[in-house]
Design a binder for these strands. Structure first.
Lengths: 107, 107
DNA sequence: TTGACCTGATACCAAAAGGTTTCATATTTA
DNA sequence: TAAATATGAAACCTTTTGGTATCAGGTCAA
């Protein structure tokens, strides 16, 4: 609801996740990214816009080109969100352990 | 493309992520989950189906009720996917460090 | 058995998403 | 300057998505 929504939305599409993997290897212009997918440049451009909105990539201008680059920090919202659950499970395990210890002391 | 798509898709909706947080606290029937959201039971049921398809929750029958529970293992595909990028960045840092060391040895 | 209760499933709707086509604009470069 | 290159943006189309309303079926309790 806060600001994590654009990130999760950006990751929901398989084409966009594939683009991110491409960008992990090297920065690419829109045309370069387009060459790797079976769709028009306009469609790829839309995906790049969504990825940018989600903070997962950055775009810099180089002459008439736009160079897209992965933004490692953009993954933070997702990692944090997953972290909530992991923390939760850790706490649950701790509680379970405590309960067992307590039960043993009652023997 | 493999089997991670249903998981990412399930996480893309804010209502579904909210449901997961609810289920982190305790297992709930469809009716119980519905009480916490401003939409019909049918709509919530659809969301639960998507979450189940994504492997993020499990559903067990208890009489005439369906009890929905969080499935911790369901998050693995997302963690693994994120892991690829983290591994990648680690390698990049290692390469950078190596390059710097090599450069220094040339002084 | 008979209601009351919990859920499944279907039909239907409006809005969003993913694509394409087309045209305009900015940069290079011959 | 002119042509080629790289992109932005808008209009349009089809499918998916998130929701509702409605009805049928299984389960519990009096």
């Amino acid at each position: 609801m806060i600001t994590e929504q654009p990130t999760f939305k950006a990751l929901a599409d398989p084409t966009r996740r594939a683009i991110l993997r491409q960008l992990a290897n090297s920065d690419m212009t829109i045309a370069q990214v387009s060459n790797n997918f079976d769709m028009t440049r306009a469609a790829v451009k839309k995906h790049l816009t969504v990825l940018s909105d989600g903070g997962l990539i950055t775009v810099r201008t180089r002459g008439r080109e736009r160079v897209n680059a992965l933004n490692p920090d953009g993954f933070a919202p997702v990692r944090d969100w997953l972290g909530f659950f992991e923390q939760f499970w850790d706490d649950r395990l701790t509680d379970l352990k405590t309960a067992i210890e307590k039960d043993r002391s009652n023997d």
